[in-house]
Simulated assay, not measured.
Amino acid sequence: MPSLNMRRSWRSVRRLRLGMPLRSVLSSLPPPKKIPRTIENTRELDETVCRPDDEELFAGNDADEFSSILKYGRTPKVLITTCRYNSTRGPAFISELLSVIPNAHYYKRGTYDLKKIVEYANNNDFSSIIVVHTNRREPDALLIIGLPDGPTAHFKLSRLVLRKDIKNHGNPTSHEPELVLNNFTTRLGHRVGRLIQSLFPQNPDFHGRRVVTFHNQRDFIFFRHHRYIFETKATKQTDSKSKKTKDVTDENISQEKVIARLQECGPRFTLKLISLQHGTFDSKGGEYEWVHKPEMDTSRRRFFL
């Protein structure tokens, strides 16, 4: 059955053919669909937004710190460690990170300085370091260091939900996951996205049906880990021939329909970029590419990623 808008447009065409005035025809047309105003589509203009025809951006991708991994030339190898004072939920969060990131290895921090850990990781062919910081027995920050030349990204971690606390959660397999990065539109967001991308292998195993998502919205990066589940459901349909012949007993034909759904595997958390530093970690003499400051939060429609 045609919709109301289709019938209105057909009536207007008939009136136009019959010589009706154009004003009356336009008045009978349905009004255009309005686009709701949101914070995202009314964001402030940013000169650093990446464009598809930006040749300088793509030329820089071939020579940055992540090109050796993202060009399939090097397999990522990630070292995961903690701060010096670990928490009760820290080990559980790290064990779930090990199941999310392929080829990741956990090393106990002990009393080693972070510069010594960077030196050790470089000597053992690691490509990245992830440091889980804790505060009041709760993980509250992530430090991601690209090796051997950086950069170092400091993220605030919040709203952590472990796998066991997610209702109807699934258990991930050992297949290499598919990575999804959303809304990293600026130069800074593009660089942060490539840093996150360098943690994962670039040849996902689609048979495992695993998906790892980093979704940026209003400079908050939401992390989710899912797996696809395909289910077949039988649907019954009445045969049209039996209706035409007016048989007393209707013949029901069962058909199988494949339905896809997502099952969350966990963990679930949110990241907020605090700083991006040139090179590996250096708290005293390091040169920063970008640092978040309180005076940057004067407008709700100003985003940096």
Rank of each mutant, 00 (worst) to 15 (best):
N135L: 09
K243I: 01
P52D: 04
P294K: 13
F222D: 10
S242W: 03
D140S: 11
K34M: 11
D125F: 07
E289V: 11
R109W: 04
H105I: 15
N122H: 01
V49Q: 05
G60F: 04
F214Y: 07
E251D: 15
N135K: 10
S254V: 11
H154M: 08
E138F: 08
V258Y: 02
Y85F: 12
Y106T: 08
K164I: 05
D46K: 15
D205W: 01
E40N: 11
K244S: 09
M1T: 15
E287N: 13
S158L: 02
F93S: 02
G60Q: 11
R137N: 13
P76R: 06
P172T: 00
H175V: 04
R210I: 00
T185A: 07
G285V: 05
F223I: 09
R51F: 06
I144V: 15
P102Y: 01
C50W: 10
I274K: 14
F200I: 00
Q217G: 00
G266D: 04
S95L: 07
Q202V: 07
E289I: 14
R187Y: 07
T280I: 11
K156A: 10
K156C: 07
G19I: 03
N122Q: 13
T134G: 10
K71M: 08
S9F: 08
D113I: 03
L18R: 15
K33T: 11
P31F: 01
I69G: 05
I129R: 05
K116W: 01
T75A: 11
Y228T: 12
A104K: 06
D149Y: 14
G60W: 05
G266E: 03
L70C: 09
I69N: 03
R261M: 04
K257I: 12
R210F: 02
G189N: 02
T270I: 14
L181Y: 02
D54A: 07
R261G: 02
P2W: 09
E56G: 07
F214W: 07
P30R: 09
N182Y: 05
L97E: 01
S275Y: 04
T48R: 14
L162Y: 00
Q277K: 07
S174Y: 07
I144H: 03
I196Y: 15
C50K: 13
N203D: 06
L195F: 04
T245S: 13
P201L: 04
